[in-house]
Amino acid sequence: MTRFARLLPLCALVALAACSDPFGGSGTGQTAAPGSTADPSSVAYFQQTVGDRVLFPVDQAVLTDGARATVNQQAKWLTANGAYTAVVEGHADEQGTREYNLALGARRATAVRDQLVEAGVAPGRIRTLTYGKERPLEVCSEEACYEKNRRAVTVLTAGGTS
């Protein structure tokens, strides 16, 4: 329980805007990113230049080649910026039951986590979280939106390993 509780205040230190979401960032990408993309050690750089999210095909939780390359870059950044830990949020599109999508989101988040660990990030620095279909990024009911909602977002938090 103490591990859970710690996330929120830490998040508040990192990015006030991102904390307008009470869950410590839902990966909607609409919050202002701290720092400048010109600074390679900034959260903004991680989010925009490295890429904080990967997308999944329908019903899939296996990383595509492109997704794996993105996650490897995330791992590289995390290795270089040891002050951060990460929560990987898994999401699903609305085409599925609430309950199944929770499990599917967990599977997607784990796929990213496993690849981060594979690429050298200490397992203790990464937690996984599923939102199922509860936090869509795009709101239309078409594949153009669904493909952006089937995602795993690596959300940075400041602090040592938990």
């Binding site: 329980m1 591990r3 309950e99 929770l102 499990a103 599977r107 997607r108 796929a111 496993d114 599923t130």
Partner: peptide
Amino acid sequence: PEGMTFSPRYAPDGKSVLFSMAVGGNT
């Protein structure tokens, strides 16, 4: 257990519950 738990359901006698837990992507 510590982890992500969801999908609870009462037993008919109300004395126990079922739930799901996701660990390492396996629910």
